[in-house]
């Protein structure tokens, strides 16, 4: 069936386009579930991207590179935590400032590394399995970070809904005063959540600089951090939907490019608007139903907590 041959390549391209969004989205989801809104995703991704790239170029060790990217992202997030959690600065303003800072810092760090190629992250190849037509390359032919992104989503999903720690995290995000009065350390839990978010953003950035387009160039995230923020709303704060949403957000761009290449007349700007309009619509749909929004959206998001005692 020649008519369906395009599906496999489209899916393969979608996976690459979606993976950085999955990482950044799932990290920010945990951050937001704890009741914190960190708008600095773009900045954290960039710092992760450059740190990962530098580590890979200098050491040649990609495992270390991803680790370093995660660490760099969480250091950025820690900074955000100090300001918003300990010093109670406004989260929206601090997040925006963090992005300003991250864009500059990553450019400064990467100055010597512009225009350097690096080998892309290895892809899995299992003789026999990867060669299966259609599903082989999709399921058995990805790089390690793609598999990791699925594992992280599964782990986060399990953590949030099946573990006590996950319950506590959600409680902190839904009612910090109540969680505090039971005796949980709201600030401590939020620090962990924020830093997890940073680490995931860092890995998402490293996916760009090591696998998606293996190079470093200033501002190479090109707004993906902001898309990740939209994605979480679109996913109504559910980990599984973050995954699906990331593939849809990535997919729209890919399909649009394919349609153009096939000679179909599509106004690209109008199509580019679609994900954002769709997010607004989803938000309206879930918000309309009070019980649903209460179930998934963290009630304390963006609110400052100070123990009254």
């Amino acid at each position: 069936m020649a008519g369906f041959d395009w599906i496999v390549p489209v899916i393969l391209t979608m996976i690459t386009a979606a993976t950085p969004l999955v990482f950044a989205g799932i990290g920010e989801l945990i951050t937001e579930k704890s009741g914190v809104l960190n708008l600095g995703v773009e900045g954290m991704m960039l710092v992760g991207a450059v740190t990962g790239f530098i580590t890979a170029t200098v050491t040649g060790n990609y495992f270390l590179a991803v680790l370093a990217a995660a660490f760099a992202g969480s250091v950025m997030a820690f900074l955000f935590g100090v300001l918003t959690l300990s010093l109670m600065a406004n989260q929206v303003a601090t997040g925006l400032a963090l992005t300003l800072f991250g864009v500059g810092l990553s450019a400064l760090m990467g100055q010597e590394f512009v225009g350097m190629p690096v080998d892309p992250l290895d892809k899995l190849y299992i003789s026999g399995l990867t060669d299966i037509p259609y599903i082989g390359p999709i399921i058995f032919g990805q790089d390690g970070l793609v598999y990791l992104s699925f594992a992280v989503v599964a782990a986060v999903s399990w953590f949030l809904y099946k573990t006590k720690a996950g319950l506590i995290l959600r409680a902190v995000g839904d009612s910090h005063d109540a969680a505090h009065s039971i005796g949980y350390s709201v600030i401590g839990i939020r620090y962990l959540a924020v830093m997890f978010g940073g680490a995931m953003s860092g890995i998402g950035g490293a996916y760009l600089s090591l696998a998606y387009t293996p190079m470093w160039a200033e501002n190479m995230t090109a707004g993906r951090g902001w898309i990740a923020l939209a994605l979480i709303v679109f996913a109504t704060w559910k980990p599984g939907l973050v995954l699906i949403g990331a593939y849809m957000f990535g997919g729209i761009t890919i399909l649009q490019l394919h349609a153009q290449a096939a000679g179909l007349d599509v106004p690209s700007q109008v199509l580019s608007m679609l994900p954002y309009v769709a997010t607004v619509l989803v938000l309206v749909l879930i918000s309309k139903d009070q019980s649903r929004i209460r179930k998934h959206a963290p009630a304390c998001i963006g609110k400052i907590f100070h123990p009254a005692a």
Partner: peptide, 19 residues
């Protein structure tokens, strides 16, 4: 000084003011 320094510097000023 590259423009990147401005970003870092601005970030720093804002962090201190907000903090």
């Amino acid at each position: 000084l590259p423009v990147a320094v401005t970003g870092v510097f601005q970030g720093m000023v804002l962090f201190f003011l907000l903090a």
